[in-house]
Design a protein around this nucleic acid. Sequence first.
RNA 1: UCCUCAGUAGCUCAGUUGGUUAGAGCAACGGACUGUUAAUCCGUGGGUCGUAAGUUCGAGUCUUACCUGGGGAG
Length: 375
Amino acid sequence: MFKVKSRDKETRARTGTLETAHGEIPTPIFMPVGTAGTVKGILQRDLTEDINAKIILGNTYHLYLRPGTGILKASGGLHKFMNWSRPLLTDSGGYQVFSLAGNRKLTEEGAVFKSHIDGSRHVFTPENTIDIQRIIGADIMMALDECAPFPCDHRYAEKSVALTHQWLDRAVSRYKETEPLWNYEQLLFPIVQGSTFDDLRKISAEKAASINMAGNAIGGLSVGEPADEMYRIIDIVNEILPDDKPRYLMGVGTPVNILEAIERGIDMFDCVMPTRNGRNGMLFTSEGIINIKNRRWIDDFSPIDPSGPSVVSLYYSKAYLRHLVISGEILGSQIASIHNLSFYLRLVSEARVKIEEGNFKRWKEQMIIKLSERL
RNA sequence: UCCUCAGUAGCUCAGUUGGUUAGAGCAACGGACUGUUAAUCCGUGGGUCGUAAGUUCGAGUCUUACCUGGGGAG
């Protein structure tokens, strides 16, 4: 159940709450990515207490291959398995089918793919990805889709959308004819596709809206297209997606991307950027974006981020974090990830406050400038 | 003192029977990363080949002397 709390007067931005079986999620929200049942390098305790993540992702593809549905079922679902009591969302594996391009084949039935772990053959269908997500016990499940590559021609995109829609119908049927395994409600979100083609995006948004699920997702963006293209598509799609349901922009993005999308009416985000880029030395701070590996930080003993999105941001210096990352120390990855995730969570939290205060637009314009700066 | 092995990039080392602008890994420096196949990947700089002489059309490669280091003998 989604409730809109307040709306920005100048833009499509809004705040709200999404109720799930494991708790209420304030929106707009950023969801840390925890592919294999872990947000890489971060303890669940830090996730709840320091970062204050309201919901995290898991991935059907990865969890299905390892540890496998047997263990997930025996453990009582992913929440229990990983000791996470807040909401979970699982991606259907559609994106993996896309990113494993060389190793898969799409058929009407589903996606045939080879495991990146041992090369074994598997098939994902709209039906079995629902079944797997039932076993995982995700509060929000995603329908299997095809994430078309960019660039792709209209013909390919049209066929891809048709396949995604056919799969969507089947996923919805399976969803409706099955019960949750763990005695709590699981939501299912459809995914809008259509590459950068306005007509296909409109058709796809209408399709998603028509099946009347608890929320809707936009996929197939930030796959290489220019940011302006992405913003344009978001505008087109959000014009059509129901306003009283949450809109989830999958896989996005940079802090700037997120603010631009919030302005356009997006409520939910996920992205590997704060964790992966953090591990690789990229820090998002109130002072700008920094590459902590650069020599210039070698003797900068000021806090990682004096504005302190997390305790580690204030507790450790840039010079120390540089030393850790340069030395390949695990703690470096952890600190960078905790800081970046906290930065992202605080960014959306501030956005919520600004929307409610009625000065989102002005705040956003100022933030964009700061967030684009590279030090 | 003699014998022997070795000296090539900051480090550890490749470099065919002599044959073009001497390579690698690591380190350094910079970059990429957007529903994670990523503690990953890409790029750049850096060498009087221990020194000096010789042989040769041509020497990191062969010869001689010396210097430095390892091992051995006395």
